[in-house]
Design a protein around this nucleic acid. Sequence first.
DNA 1: AATTGGACCAACCGCCGCCAA
DNA 2: ATTGGCGGCGGTTGGTCCAAT
Length: 164
Amino acid sequence: MGRSPCCEKAHTNKGAWTKEEDDRLVAYIRAHGEGCWRSLPKAAGLLRCGKSCRLRWINYLRPDLKRGNFSQQEDELIIKLHSLLGNKWSLIAGRLPGRTDNEIKNYWNTHIRRKLVSRGIDPTTHRPMNEASASQQSKEESREKCPDLNLDLRINPPLQNGHE
DNA sequence: AATTGGACCAACCGCCGCCAA
DNA sequence: ATTGGCGGCGGTTGGTCCAAT
């Protein structure tokens, strides 16, 4: 038997969020902060599963989100970080203030991947298409190529926005 | 004007690691 | 030492928009 579902699916909404649901979620988190996602929906009066609330908040409702087009600098940074970290979107997002892992993942898949391919660069290995091998070595090389990048990755405490 | 195919993006699914019991 | 619940992550899907035909 698999693990039990994270919530009572029969009593939860799915799909796009309504304005009212957004308002409820924002109001609740402003008042109580990000706490236990599992119990949040009930406490906030939402017919959603906790995971859905968390995702909506992190990817869309958080007040510190930048949104809008990616700048050229962000573009280059994502490519550099991806060459070093691979598909570790959350780590990459941690280096781009105001951007979410989901947003970066989408942006990578729709824009950057194609851009690299059109340049003849393999988006997985970050090497010219005709030398698909030696990906491990490439990581070491790119580390040397990007000494400006602070790769001392660490976990920071959550931003204290003083949930107004 | 209608159709269609691709691009984009929000949201879901399923797995994994951590940690408390 | 084991187990089950939870949060978090990456992959994927599905709906919407828009440009090309």
